[in-house]
Amino acid sequence: MPDTILVVVEQREGKLNRVSWETITAGQAIAAATGWTLEAAVVGGTASTFAAEVAAKKVGKVYAVESPKLEPYTPDAFAAALKQLLTAKQPKLVLMPHTYQVRDFVPKLATAMGRAVISDCIGFKHENGKLVFTRQMFQGKLAADVSFNSDAPWFATFQNGAFRGDKAEDGASPAPIETVAADIADGVIRNKPQEAFKEAKQAVDLTQAEVIVAVGRGIKEQKNIEIAKQLADALGADLAASRPICDNGWLPMDRQIGSSGQTVAPKVYLALGISGAIQHIVGMKGSRTIIAVNKDSEAPIFEIADYAIIGNLFDIVPPLTEEVKKVKAELAK
């Protein structure tokens, strides 16, 4: 029997999320490189209702892992259900998207099986028959190629945006679906989750913004936010921030960009004093043009910047604001 790759997709509110398709694309790419078979699994209270959507993709088989105890999500139930599936099917490699939910249960699942997870990967390489996974380290300043040093199953999770979800290939015909009843004993689930909710109604929708001026730690003090605000006002842009700025209360949480905030794709994203930690990058790397101002020439933000200005934002931004105002005034004449 050939080795198998199993992609565990994620559904939220009855819909498969975008990163799930990205992980299927990743699985298809690894299958093509290694010659291994690709299968998928959907996990939930009524997983079979989502299985057909996945079965339309180019995968050998889809497992619908079901139990009423899988709804709502708990790490105890998910780890128990998947451990049963993996023990029975023995895939070589298990892939999942690096979502908050997967982060919550996959280290537990792997530990329960005495295995490791290479988490938050951005790519893979298949070199001389050896599979290595690329992940960012030191907040994106360095990259590492990491290999497994254990027996199967191997677990890897892929970062949001690492692969193109729309590149997931369709199958010639729907893949067979096998419903697997997960046996989760009473007492296994210890956490009692309540309904998910949104804090205050999000007042600011940055997803539609054409131009965003975003500030990071480099702004140093709350009073300096004004410098960025003036540039944003001059440009007619929306003001946004990286997480530490909102954590400090210097700007409201609904202006936060990144994995715990909004995901944006404006025409122009102007990053002021933002180093470019992974958690921020995932929220804005889809921007059409990225302009970064940072005094640290090695800041990871420059890896994805179209225009780089290495310098102190306190020197750079005020004359920029003046120049924008000047040109706008001329255009208005």
Partner: peptide, 30 residues
């Protein structure tokens, strides 16, 4: 159970244009 084979400075996937000069020159160019 997992081994770092190698660590390296990530390869840039994007072509980045540096805008240089005095702050006023940078402002004009940008």
């Amino acid at each position: 159970l997992q081994k770092i084979e190698r660590l390296y400075v990530p390869q840039k996937t994007k072509k980045t244009e540096h805008i240089e000069g005095s702050p006023v020159e940078i402002a004009k160019k940008l």
